[in-house]
């Protein structure tokens, strides 16, 4: 009895201590109490603050770009925040008063207000990194993104997979990808350079920031140009909407699509032959490179005026290879 009681006391004592430690640990290690985990923890302070201005769209392109920028800011001694350029123009206008060390801007339309504000920011000496669309030229304005001429050439290379000698290509630009739209002539030159005589006719269209605008544009285009062989989209969302429109119109096989971006659905349609291929940019790399460029400007005073983040093309052979590889 005495021995049991001694063990019981010891056991309860240990349980009490253990429980107390667990309790204290729970309290101490709780994120609510950890100052290190609190947003206002001064120990996490960085040296530079950069603001990103982009369309407030929940596209995977922008999400990847943000992820790249955030990872870069974590890796480097800087902090970034993201502002809407289309819905909150005032923030963009007030950027020069916000105490920021530089901005990265994705100009989706070259409106006079945006351009003048960019000029003003540039005049105030705040470094500007223009993503995908080189809206202004200035000593402290830099470009980062894909080369539009290369993009046109890539589109042409994919179009060559179409088993037709003379094709009619419809190029649909998008406000969601303003860089390509603003350099439309470069894209088209690149396309023509690659296709040569096999390009019978080239028509263009344009979608807005509306996510389902592509359907309307495809209908219009096909109405105006019923002999269109290939439709080229410049945004991933537009690509998905356009594919659905072609399927709905029962034109699969008759009209082929060159998409934009990489997505499981797009891959599946490439494998099935609905989509001829896709132009793939690397938004993560773009975001990361933008922060890296801003940091370089802040610390050493300059960076490369033109940074090409490159593009890839996704064809049926590539998708099949990956698909078969994953099956094995």
């Amino acid at each position: 009895m005495g021995k049991y009681l001694k063990f019981l006391t010891l056991f309860l004592g240990l349980v009490f201590i253990g429980f107390f430690i667990v309790s204290v640990r729970l309290l101490i290690l709780n994120p609510l109490l950890l100052s290190a985990d609190q947003p206002g923890d001064p120990s996490r302070a960085k040296s530079f603050h950069y603001a990103f201005f982009m369309p407030s769209s929940d596209y995977s392109f922008f999400n990847s770009l943000k992820a790249g920028a955030l990872d870069a800011s974590d890796a480097m001694d800087c902090a970034v925040n993201f502002n809407s350029i289309n819905e909150d123009m005032l923030s963009f206008e007030m950027a020069s008063f916000s105490g920021i060390d530089g901005i990265a801007v994705f100009v989706y339309d070259n409106s006079p207000a945006v351009l003048s504000e960019l000029e003003e920011i540039s005049r105030l000496g705040i470094p500007i990194v223009q993503i995908e669309n080189e809206a202004i030229i200035g000593s402290n304005a830099f470009f980062i993104g894909t080369n539009s001429f290369d993009s046109g050439k890539s589109i042409g290379r994919i179009a060559l997979f179409a088993e037709k000698n003379a094709v009619h290509i419809a190029l649909i630009y998008s406000e969601k990808n303003p860089g390509l739209m603003s350099d439309a002539n470069l894209v088209e030159i690149g396309l023509k350079t690659t296709m040569g005589d096999r390009l019978r006719e080239l028509s263009t269209g344009r979608t807005s920031l509306n996510p389902i605008d592509a359907e309307r544009v495809v209908y219009d285009l096909l109405l105006r140009n019923p002999d269109t062989d290939i439709i080229v989209l410049s945004d991933m969302n537009d690509t998905l909407v356009a594919i659905q429109a072609i399927i709905d119109l029962n034109l699969v096989g008759q009209i082929q699509i060159i998409g934009f971006g990489e997505d499981e659905t797009i891959r599946e349609y490439i494998r099935k032959g609905v989509v001829l291929g896709s132009i793939v940019r690397n938004p993560y790399r773009i975001g990361y490179s933008a922060v890296m460029a801003l940091k370089e400007i802040s610390t050493i005073g300059y960076t490369s005026a033109y940074i090409d983040t490159g593009i890839n093309i996704l064809t049926r052979a590539e998708v099949e290879r990956v698909h078969n590889g994953s099956l094995r």
Partner: peptide, 8 residues
């Protein structure tokens, strides 16, 4: 201080 948080 420049803190890596949107609100901050």
């Amino acid at each position: 201080p420049i803190l890596p948080d949107e609100t901050e």
